[in-house]
Design a protein around this nucleic acid. Structure first.
Lengths: 150, 150
DNA sequence: TTCTAAATACAATAATGTTGCATTTGTATT
DNA sequence: AATACAAATGCAACATTATTGTATTTAGAA
């Protein structure tokens, strides 16, 4: 499920967006691409505790501006970041997919397999984008629960 | 659109939930019921600056636990609170409706008129609830924009 | 190799979330 | 109406997260 990429590809990504290839940035990219769930900044901090908190903050911000990652909020309102798929470009995110919040492991999954239903809003509202959130148990946690039941 | 209620009704609401009738709580209720958009804690604080920040924080928490209001996050991840409609009960919110974030005035509207589409998740995921977010221009702001264009 | 703009690290502050505790207040009971 | 107790508020304090400014370092161009 996780998109596998090597370091050369990460360097290319940075170059494409006119960003300098730096160690912190490459590490953030490889960490985020190795997971199939979104990552919160505290997550990143605990893994890369030698990188400054503010640096991570700014890296995430610029990645988001450039359309490399997008930000989603979990059930507690903390920001999580996930790699964008294909069609995001600078300042225009195409993240109309389902964000699944697992209530047990707290992970946030981006479900791209599901296409958004067409929706009509009440008169006057002009929608620019939709995001759908679901909460419940992810595959791993629902299995665990089943084991417990037996 | 805003649900009109008087002070007696607010007192009843508190009593029903075994909450004491206090001035801060009644003021919060009347403020929230007078609006048709969700309210953030900073909003409340600026209006009721004589009430302690922590008191507001706790009032909002207990109201949420009791099913009187529900919490939604806006595009910036800040918590907003809106009065619940009919079928919320303690520890079980029925807020499967659309939350519309206006990108201009930043207001969050709860759109109950729209019924949620049925969705099927990938195998393994067990959804307990859905929430739909939309962003764009609310009726007021889209009118303003039209005026500007002329 | 040198130079410059960009990126990082560090310091500092703001905003928000959260807990503990003393004081006050609503309400049930006498 | 007075009392008594649990609940609610207000205040102090602290934790976490978001954010800005600036000196230092570094990537990449010349």
């Amino acid at each position: 499920m996780a998109q596998v990429k090597n370091n050369y590809q990460f360097e290319d990504m940075l170059q494409k967006h006119n960003l300098k290839k730096t160690a912190p940035r490459l590490r953030v990219l490889s960490m985020m691409y190795s997971k199939n769930t979104a990552t919160s900044q505290p997550d990143l901090e605990s893994v890369m505790n030698d990188i400054d908190r503010v640096t991570l903050y700014r890296i995430l911000n610029t990645f988001e501006e450039k359309g490399i990652i997008h930000k989603v909020f979990d059930l507690n309102g903390t920001a999580n970041y996930a790699v964008c798929h294909s069609d995001c470009r600078e300042n225009h995110h195409q993240d109309e997919h389902l964000h699944f919040n697992c209530t047990l492991c707290k992970n946030v999954y981006c479900i791209n397999e599901l296409n958004m239903p067409k929706l009509t809003l009440p008169a006057g509202f002009e929608a620019q984008g939709f995001t759908l959130y679901a909460s419940g148990l992810c595959p791993k946690c629902s299995k665990k629960e089943q084991v417990k039941m037996n």
